[in-house]
Design a protein around this nucleic acid. Structure first.
Lengths: 135, 135
DNA sequence: AAATATTCTACTTATTCTATAGACTAATAG
DNA sequence: CTATTAGTCTATAGAATAAGTAGAATATTT
């Protein structure tokens, strides 16, 4: 299941994409409109800012705004920042690969093949949908 | 990502399937062979027993054994017991449906459609693979 | 310069989940 | 009866989740 962090993050990005690139929107506006705890959202937006999706402006007339083209922002890229690996096992992750400590080898691991199949299917969806599709 | 609970559960079921239906195997044997903490595995097997996948025999010559045909046990059914919903959001889950508290309506939810697509893709894989495929 | 609006930072809290460990109880086979 | 094995119950350390509180820093307007 998606964490609320990722869910809220995607919703906020979609909201900002609707408003258009480079148009500052208040955290509190997004929080109210999308029913998100303001403080929690603040942390999420900050994380998206640090990772190059958003920028912000302080003071009156400030807020957060999208600095990428909505059609360039895939769900996959947001997911990896906010949620982590898309794969179901570390040993089948493309971006966060790690060896499983309980498996003797990946060839012997009975789950390996199925989980690669799941990953590929999921990835296809996440890589091919962008903020444009979510609007 | 899969919890270790689910991963270990699937591995244990596969191990038992290899040994054949109705052949008792020691918890400790599975734990050693699959590099799983024995106590943790105990809890997992118990859960699978309560849900009708396994049965157990106490005393000498005892152990856990499969009581379903391996080709009947889909990954999806095990996943739902040990991990929970397969869907990424409560509101797109078939077996664990719940309304999202932050969404006004499911039609307006920008994530709904994509997450249904992900669910359907994942489900196709999980429903169509059984213990037989894992062996 | 002061007032106001807004994000930024740090600290704290409550709750749940994860992955175990230990001790004791109950059943079964020989 | 005894050895073997699962069952039950309790505890726990650590991490993650989803916030809440307080105030500092920065920008704009007056």
């Amino acid at each position: 299941m998606l964490s609320k962090r990722t869910k809220y993050g995607l919703k906020a990005l979609t909201y900002l994409a609707k408003k258009g690139k480079n148009t500052p929107v208040l955290i509190s506006e997004i929080a109210t409109e999308e029913n998100i705890s303001k403080k929690f959202l603040e942390a999420i937006l900050l994380q998206l800012k640090r990772n190059g999706f958003l920028a912000s402006k302080m003071g009156k007339g400030g807020g957060y705004y999208l600095i990428k083209d909505p059609e360039e922002v895939t769900i996959a890229s947001v997911y990896r920042i906010l949620e982590g690996p898309i794969a179901m096992l570390p040993c089948v992750s493309l971006n966060y690969y790690e060896k499983c400590d309980d498996c003797k080898s990946e060839e012997e691991c009975t789950l390996h093949k199925v989980m690669i199949e799941v990953r590929d299917n999921t990835l296809k969806v996440y890589e091919n949908s962008t903020l444009i599709d979510l609007i």
